[in-house]
Write a protein that binds this DNA or RNA. Structure first.
Lengths: 287, 287
DNA sequence: TTGGTAGTAGAACAATAATTTCATCGACGT
DNA sequence: ACGTCGATGAAATTATTGTTCTACTACCAA
């Protein structure tokens, strides 16, 4: 890029590289006064109902605003985009990140990452995924389900914890927490092969919690089945309604962790698990 | 339409009028077992990442799932929609609702939840703590530290993981992740007392990572000391500059988890740990 | 008035996307 | 083994959508 266009970048629109919704919004406000009538109409609409822009087509938006379709294109180009679609991407990204206002503040803080800082990108990526996970879970966990899960577990004399592989850290933390809280629980994931024997002690007045994410460990599923056959109430934490343990649970939570490059942090599940531990303890105090 | 097809409406798909995302989701789950393989693939994807469906096009979704575009249309029609777009509308509506719903929910956080929903308060409290943790950590973790920690660990032939009690879930997840990534690591937290023997194999061309939060488990500190004396580079993850392991580490991170009623979620540490694993693997690929 | 500039509308075009069709495959019952 | 029927994928078809182009209008200065 020649320096000429960089210079004019702020005055005219010369292929400005607007990287997010928030910067675009600011740019629009800044240029508000210099905008022709039609473009101002569009700008107003875009800021007022960004959702429409995110989903709509050029002509649907044009109809909403009351301008011809070409005006929409010119609007996008006026702000340095190559076309409408490129601009629309910003609006879509915004929706993806949900929590509009809240997340916007963070976005604007966003440390521009040094492009050749490979590790830095990884770090930011995982934190972003962690945050998304948390927001998602926060929104998708139902209070009533949570409450009834807590009471099911609280009614159990002993709480059996089932998990393998990726899910193991979660139950190991739960085991720790339950112990601290003075509740009896058993970790049916021991490295020795004695789980089967352990579970033979479980009965209808106990309770179990299974954690399993795709690909579902067959041992966990098998153990959960055994417990259900013995009449043990089962709460589970999984990532899809299709999960084999969801089908056999009395109550189950769906927690979809966001991923970065295929790796999923367990952050949201961890929070939910801990909340569950404490809620169980609280409820048990009542009885 | 003849009455025949109406009758079969519940069995087959005959133009079922699904009015929202939630009903659709339930319908999908209900018919799960009767779905052909391809359609099940699509169903799984649709429920796992509804956002993609909301924004994507037939072919972009098809590519994601790994099926031909026509399968997507068939999927929509199978559930009584006229075509893909009609189904997509449900997914879009969901997103719209969600973002407004979300703000309401945040609002209700401030005004307090239903006062006699004890469990609900616990739940919200922990999610709030989880989010605060994440924000804190995100801002306090230094990129350079992270980068050098990654390279220290990447230079180790074997990575030794040290942690007890509350910190154990973190290293157990790291051990899992390292294994998946094809890196050699040893979990020096075994229930048997053989850790001392294990650590005797460690040397200067290995590396170690210790995780310890207040109150610092004495075993972890002791093990860390031993390793340092043997010249093993040490990275640590802790919650205070005064932590005994911070003093003896080559690089250390301070992660202060927010708490709710004295209980701390491990969410932020978990994310950092995972990011570290992946960064190490990336760096190792270079060498 | 005239010439120039900037803005606008709407048709025409090119690209992309959704849908349908059809030949093939494979499981299942006879 | 054979035939049937639903499921499947590739390609053809149809529709929608984004973008460009050109002619027209309003406005301003000379």
């Amino acid at each position: 890029m020649p320096s000429l266009s960089e210079q004019s970048g702020s005055l005219l629109s010369a292929r400005a590289v607007l990287t997010g919704y928030q910067p675009l919004k600011e740019e629009i406000v800044r240029r508000q006064k210099t905008l022709p009538k039609r473009l101002l109409q569009i700008a107003t609409f875009a800021l007022a109902s960004p959702d429409e822009v995110a989903f709509g087509t050029v002509s649907s938006i044009a109809k909403h605003v009351g301008v011809p379709p070409s005006a929409i294109i010119r609007f996008a180009q006026h702000f340095g985009f190559d076309g409408f679609v490129e601009m629309q991407r910003l609006f879509r990204d915004r929706m993806r990140e949900r929590s509009s206002e809240y997340e916007e503040r963070l976005q604007s803080l966003n440390h521009g990452v040094d492009p050749d800082d490979e590790a830095g990108k990884t770090l930011e990526g995982f934190f972003a995924a962690g945050r998304r996970s948390m927001e998602n879970a926060f929104q998708s966990v139902d209070h009533e389900k949570f409450s009834s899960a807590a009471s099911i577990l609280a009614d159990g004399k002993t709480i059996y914890l089932l998990a393998r592989r990726r899910s193991f850290p979660i139950v190991s933390y739960m085991a720790y927490s339950f112990a601290k809280l003075g509740l009896r629980c058993e970790l049916a994931s021991s490295p020795m092969g004695t789980d089967g024997d352990l579970l033979r002690f479980a009965g209808p007045d106990d309770a179990a919690l299974a954690v399993s994410f795709s690909p579902y460990a067959s041992e966990t599923v098998a153990q959960a089945r055994v417990l259900r056959e013995r009449g043990v109430p089962l709460v589970s934490l999984t990532d899809s309604p299709f999960s084999p343990i969801a089908a056999i649970s009395n109550v189950w939570f769906e927690v979809v962790e966001a991923d970065y490059g295929g790796f999923r942090p367990l952050s949201a599940s961890m929070v939910l698990a801990l909340a569950l531990c404490v809620a169980v303890a609280e409820r048990k105090q009542w009885n």
